[in-house]
Amino acid sequence: MLPLRSGLRAFALAVLLILTTGVSHADPVRVAVAANFLSPVEAIASAFEAAGGEPVEIVSGATGQHYAQIINGAPFDVFLAADQARPARLLEKGLAIEGSVFTYAQGRLVLWAGEGHQLPDNGFAGLVDHPVTRLAIANPRLAPYGRAARDALQATGQWQALQPRVVEGLSVGRALHYLATGNVSHALVAASYTYASGRPGGAWVAVDPSWHEPIRQDAVRLVNAPNPAGARAFMTFLKSAEAQSILQGFGYRAAGEVTEP
């Protein structure tokens, strides 16, 4: 009995030691980020660290999931949402810091034609008269890019005719996946994917942003942040010219370009 017990004690001690040594390092800044913004935030995080900032830990996922996790006590410092609604909700609930909300990026939409398919001659507005077998968009009820895609189709009077051929992906990434696997001929997705290294083939054309509500992505600092100082430093860096030029390199419009309506 005794050897077993002392063995257990040694094991518990070892576990405790491993756990505490993990904690004794500098606290990272933990950033929950919308999946569409993962690549730019990785680049921004390395620039932040290179400029002397604390290490950044990135948790990528769906904004709705992050929201539910934050409500239930997830230890995030900064929340980079895919929309404006979820940060606003967190403010209402007193879980986000008043005055910390700002639009960190504005998304753009492109019409993508898969390999072996053509773009309409006159761009997005000519889609309805064009051979489209299926058109993939993100789920308009869940994803800001999906709502923008539907708005743009409605604004150009193409929604009614195209709707039977519209396929919804859970996220904008899934919509593009349908195109990459040849299951749809065309897709309306985030312009940032045209900058991705693993992007599928085909051709794309920008969709005029005046045809949909701006796709504003808001950032917010969280009340229950384990590392409030790190959160503040990261948010300041996110607003800097350096970070904004990085995200422009990924197909987003910088916060400075955003003009209030």
Binding site: G64, Y67, A68, R89, N139, R141, L142, E168, L170
Partner: peptide, 21 residues
Amino acid sequence: GSIPGETRVVAIAIYEHVEML
């Protein structure tokens, strides 16, 4: 692809309700 009345099954409907709060 979550097409209402064709391929949107109950598990997907639940997921969408959760995402839409």
